[in-house]
Design a protein around this nucleic acid. Structure first.
Lengths: 131, 131, 131, 131
DNA sequence: GTGGTCTAGACCACT
DNA sequence: GTGGTCTAGACCACG
């Protein structure tokens, strides 16, 4: 459970938390039913306001990635199932398109992008929670 | 020069303009030295505050994508060259990673992502301005 | 006496117990004077903190649904009578209104809601304790 | 746009706002594309913290009831479509069941409940946004 | 002007 | 101990 939060990034702190939790889940570093650090714990660990951590946890719960049990804490969902939201799907496609165009302007080759994609799927691979 | 701006998206309007200009350039729909609509023209065309268009143009100029000639108007740069900024490169890699993870949570298959990437490069295709 | 308690719900555990006891009473599955499991029994049966069960029993007793006889245990009241509290009545009306509005937003038809209501009253049916 | 918020209720303030907006929409008192009061406006009107109003608006947006346009304000969605979430559906059914059981304990007759339901649908009727 | 993010600190309900 | 709610007040990005 090591978080790497950077307040200098223009990505909101709570989103950085969301991203990292999802990444750790996807990579199998966090297993279903595993306990996450409590709001207060994590907030003091990464020196951030508890409300900010809470906001991230709430959003993760809304997405079905984690679940909270009253008085006991927060845990990785054991019964995650895909959303298949067409709006999100479209948003992701746009994000990919934008990344490709931006990469083109920075002089990154197509092969580089494809190898990155391959690399990301390697990291997830095999550990896929649905398998 | 058809812009597709949607104020309901959570992407800032000025960024949407930037994205679309860059996309059109990458696809060859806008050629070097081609004239862009004036701030006033564009702002009335897409019903938007002129300041917003101005902000987008300023940023595009800063990135070297377009250039303004006083009294003549705004044009696509003819001498654009890649930046190779390692920070931007890293940011793009992170964006790609996040898109891959998010797609995983929405139930999008690896093949779908790869086909999208291929599709985007097809669109840019032989029209690459520096080829 | 089968309880179905789910700590993942956002309904407090002690309220879930209260609901289920009242439901079983209303359906006639628990008859007046019938003995309830002791706090310890129930808390170990549904794997829950004894304090939580105790809290539920206290509230049920306050509402007159059950009664505790020191040294003998806890029993369903035989002399329950309606409260006719106008504030509770209003609260229930509001809850129903909210459920109707929410159902509308989820796309549930009026007929579905009415059939559910009918179903619930069927379950309570001729077993009404004061009939 | 009259809100009736009561801090003494045990329903959270932001939920009361959510309920009332949804109710006004369902009744046709708020039309699609209509502007809602700004966060600051509403918060000063009902003497509440802006963050609380913001939280309510965020949740309403998540549910697709309203939409926010950057720098312009918050508006009723014109393209609302049902969610058909089976989990929400089940939650609503449970809420209805609980209301029926509670009403039974307060001495409310079946006919009274049914007449309330009918009344609520009368208020919504005809003005249904999807018609 | 709009909403979005973050902080600091308080109080409460639940277990 | 846990998370949930609310307040007060600050700063920022966007239009």
């Amino acid at each position: 459970m090591y978080f790497n939060i950077d307040p200098k990034k223009n990505v909101p702190l709570y989103e950085q938390i969301i991203h990292q939790v999802k990444e750790m889940c996807a990579k199998g570093l966090l297993k279903p039913e595993e306990k996450l650090p409590s709001v207060r714990e994590l907030s003091s660990q990464i020196v951030i306001n508890p409300n900010t951590v809470s906001k991230a946890y709430k959003e993760l719960e809304r997405q079905g990635v984690i679940m909270t049990i009253r008085g006991r804490g927060t845990f990785i969902s054991e019964d995650f199932h895909f959303t298949h939201d067409p709006r999100k799907s479209e948003a992701i496609k746009q994000a990919l398109k934008q990344a490709v165009i931006d990469s083109h302007y920075v002089g990154i080759e197509k092969e580089q992008v494809e190898s990155w994609i391959e690399e990301f799927y390697q990291e997830i691979g095999g550990e896929n929670r649905e398998s």
